[in-house]
């Protein structure tokens, strides 16, 4: 009797120690509600879109973070990404390039982009899949006659966040049919491919194991409605493609390039897994 209960007890104590160290609670998303600045309600939980077979409810990554990290996103004065957004607002009004134009001289108020991010990525008139970075760089090179911004550079990601902010609180709704269908399928195939020497797919972690701890990390569903996202660990705004690159690299794989067609397709597919959540950028994550 004693011999039976003693090891059981020590195991329970040890589990308590381990749980205590892994700060975020074990288990699924928390029950918190996200209301930004006291007025913008963010949908962080929604029925999964019809195309998803293995998940019935989708959650924003915000629901998996600690209370401290969550709080930084609840008020724009606390959100460290807002400095970058302010810089982008300044850039929006600044004349640059041989055409002598600023973004504002053609687009007027940045608020005119309200709603755009909720439908990105999308297929352009030429049949190519385009993401926000493509639209911005096209205006810079073709219309302003200045140099393209680097994909994950601060200038670019701050502008992507500023434009995204105009849609904050709107519901993600990217098209996956018609001309988008082949790109979406390509992205889906990638999502289920077990890359690298560790042979892990996005789905292994973000579909089969969301809510579980992997070492010190509390796994979310890997949603991109909060991107560009301010990552406290890197102390800057992170692009979607940079996050994809990091997750693939961590499977000991040869990753794809930021701005590659593969990552555009993956972006469309991952965005479509968030159809129904609010645009949340600029989010704050650990």
């Amino acid at each position: 009797m004693n011999r039976m209960s003693a090891p059981g007890l020590s195991a329970a104590t040890a589990i308590a120690v381990v749980t205590g160290l892994a700060a975020p609670a074990f288990g699924g998303p928390d029950d918190d509600e996200l209301i930004i600045n006291g007025d913008t309600t963010i949908i962080t939980e929604a029925p999964a879109p019809d195309h998803m077979e293995y998940i019935s409810t989708i959650y924003s990554g915000w629901r998996f973070r600690t209370d401290e990290t969550q709080a930084l996103e609840e008020d724009d004065f606390d959100n460290p990404a807002m400095l970058a957004v302010d810089a982008a607002l300044e850039a929006f009004d600044t004349v640059e390039g041989d055409a002598g134009e600023s973004c504002a001289s053609c687009h007027g108020d940045v608020e005119s982009f309200a709603g755009l991010t909720a439908h990105m990525p999308k297929v352009g008139e030429d049949g190519n899949l385009v993401v926000m970075e493509d639209l911005i760089n096209e205006c810079r090179t073709d219309r302003m006659q200045t140099e393209a911004w680097k994909w994950s550079g601060d200038d670019m990601q701050s502008m992507v966040a500023l434009i995204g902010l105009q849609s904050r609180g709107m519901t993600m709704d990217v098209a996956i049919d018609g001309p988008a269908a082949p790109f979406w399928q390509q992205g889906k195939d990638m999502y289920y491919t077990r890359y690298g020497q560790l042979e892990l797919s996005c789905a292994n972690c973000h579909e089969d194991n969301w809510g579980n701890m992997i070492r010190a990390d509390h796994l979310s569903q890997g949603q991109i409605n909060g991107f560009p996202t301010y990552r406290l660990k890197q102390a800057k705004l992170i692009s979607k493609h940079n996050r994809f690159r990091g997750c693939i690299r961590d499977t000991r794989a040869e990753t794809f390039a930021e701005g590659s067609d593969e990552f555009r397709a993956l972006e469309l597919y991952v965005a479509s897994r968030g159809n129904g959540l609010s645009v949340e950028t600029p989010a704050v994550r650990q």
Partner: peptide
């Protein structure tokens, strides 16, 4: 999902450890 620890081929886009490169 458990990695295969004594295996050295048959991978999709294997990388050089965590460098992200082939």
């Amino acid at each position: 999902m458990m990695p295969s620890f004594y295996k050295n081929d048959g991978y999709i886009r294997p990388g050089d450890a965590y460098s992200g490169k082939a």
